[in-house]
Design a protein around this nucleic acid. Sequence first.
DNA 1: GATGAATGAGGGTTCATTCAT
DNA 2: TATGAATGAACCCTCATTCAT
Lengths: 192, 192, 192, 192
Amino acid sequence: MDKRAAIIDAAIAVFAEKGVEKATVSDIVKRAGIAQGTYYLYFPSRLAVMGGIAERVLTQLLARLHAQLDGLPAGAQLDRLAAVIFTEVGAQHQEVALLYSGMTQTDQMRRWEQIYAPLYAWLQQLLEQARADGAIAAGVQPRHAARVLVGAIEAAAEQVHLYADTSADEARAHLAELERFIGAGLGRAPAV
Amino acid sequence: MDKRAAIIDAAIAVFAEKGVEKATVSDIVKRAGIAQGTYYLYFPSRLAVMGGIAERVLTQLLARLHAQLDGLPAGAQLDRLAAVIFTEVGAQHQEVALLYSGMTQTDQMRRWEQIYAPLYAWLQQLLEQARADGAIAAGVQPRHAARVLVGAIEAAAEQVHLYADTSADEARAHLAELERFIGAGLGRAPAV
Amino acid sequence: MDKRAAIIDAAIAVFAEKGVEKATVSDIVKRAGIAQGTYYLYFPSRLAVMGGIAERVLTQLLARLHAQLDGLPAGAQLDRLAAVIFTEVGAQHQEVALLYSGMTQTDQMRRWEQIYAPLYAWLQQLLEQARADGAIAAGVQPRHAARVLVGAIEAAAEQVHLYADTSADEARAHLAELERFIGAGLGRAPAV
Amino acid sequence: MDKRAAIIDAAIAVFAEKGVEKATVSDIVKRAGIAQGTYYLYFPSRLAVMGGIAERVLTQLLARLHAQLDGLPAGAQLDRLAAVIFTEVGAQHQEVALLYSGMTQTDQMRRWEQIYAPLYAWLQQLLEQARADGAIAAGVQPRHAARVLVGAIEAAAEQVHLYADTSADEARAHLAELERFIGAGLGRAPAV
DNA sequence: GATGAATGAGGGTTCATTCAT
DNA sequence: TATGAATGAACCCTCATTCAT
């Protein structure tokens, strides 16, 4: 019924299977079970669906963060932040990989900011709360720290989940180092 | 004379101008001033030149790091690491943007590890030295910390240089937060 | 209210703007302010509207001829024939241009005869009258002369109004020569 | 060998068979025995080949006029002008029909003047010669008369050869009237 | 090594037409 | 009558790649 959602679903699958460059609109519509022309009623070009995928990924990530962290004290939320994102990027690694190749191909790079905005806003508020609680170092600048954190965590997650053949042990160690790093960087605990 | 280099130069310019997906071999050879067929004497396919671009970017980054940091104590090198990479990514932001879109498109994602390997190796060694010097916290795991650091710094640099319309003030503040973060994360100084 | 007329109006405008080949039914209905499907209630195919345009042009031309010439002696009507058609083709040059491209595209070329029939009939009768009056040469064959005259006048009008960047002076001179030609050809006056 | 000429040949045939709107580039190249892409090495768009067809038609018409008329006195050349053009348009009626539909479809209508220029120039000169010989009326304006004549003759030829199901008798009568008309119009003979 | 004309498969996109409402 | 979302066949054109010179 919801053709827009069906297109996004199909696009994720097809892009993941054949790669962004090789995937054709024909592949997508075939899998979505709609006609060729119908695609263009919802997205103006082959790659425009990337925006739709990105929104969905971020929305889902934010939902997961809320589900896992809401109710905890701000400091505790920050302690678990990396692990939750790590897990979620792992779960959605296909979609995330797409985004990195898809978004940069079009002129839509500026849409990143827009799409990430809710995540940044949420984390910034969390950092402000934690600072008010005295749970992190006073010198932390929430606005920038939010972006630095997201960048560091996602970069780590991608290294593990997308680019390298990382063993489970390596992945755990990588996450551990990242958490140690964040903990110390935020002043949750002194660096050991 | 060096046609291989001319092709890489031209490819960087063309990819940056038209985007990776829309750039054609014809565009590249025209700008390089060579014949269509000549391209295939140096690279086996349209996207194969991305590997060449990546090598050049990383080589140049590593060279810059050596030039700016060699001779300093390990701890001091780490303190300045972010600033140097930040600057370099800013200077090469066109090329860097390409890599993010280009590498993921082919099946070459695994080449990332290979291309980044020298950078990771250098930084890992630097961290080991710094730990031996007592310049950073003993808990730092050089192998993983190297990757975490590179990821965090590059992610921040990309946010500033590629994706957002960031003002100079914002950029400075972003870098400052990143440096504070790294300093505390490595235990160079306690988080303030 | 009269949707058929609205479609013809819109089609004339759209065909003139984008050319017959590039004009779409979507363009036409958008400009006519009706729904896509409504078009097909009035015309069975995209180009069928050309017939409607043609009828309108010819009807209007014939009306203009009657308005300007009725009541004059047959000879005098013939003297003014070229000027009236010239003016009318100038006024409707968009529509006329369409006909030349539109009619030939479909299998409708034979419809020309049918659409032009009333004009030919009217002129043939006028020529017969003029011959009976002794106002033109006795050798004129009304049936064929009607077609030759219409052809000559329209060709001249098209040259001036459609194909060339003709100055007003040139246009006047062209018309003058045409009138001289017709006058002499019909034996209204000996060629000077 | 000459691919450009082969394309024009094939285009004439295909356009004539299927109509301009329905003819595809694929049809043309198949008949020309070349690859799809090769077409675009010679003509920038599907309809651009029309220009090539037009040049050829006019060139051939001019050649025929020279072949049939050169050497005759100017007045005699004018007397036979209509018959020669009539015949030639009959012989090339496919190509001529194309031009009327093809040229108007693109933005190339202004090219008509350019393509017809040699014919106009030749006829204008002929009229000047005839006037100098005293073979036609002194009032004839060669520049404009050339265009009027060409227009009248071609219009008549098209009526006969393209648009109507004209019998041979009708066609002869039509030509006769046209010749009578031209003769009187130029003052070769008084109108009878 | 270098050229560039030729290839031809392939895909994004358009758009005339339909039909359930 | 009117609508406009949906259809899907069809086509123009591009462009990576080849190969004779």
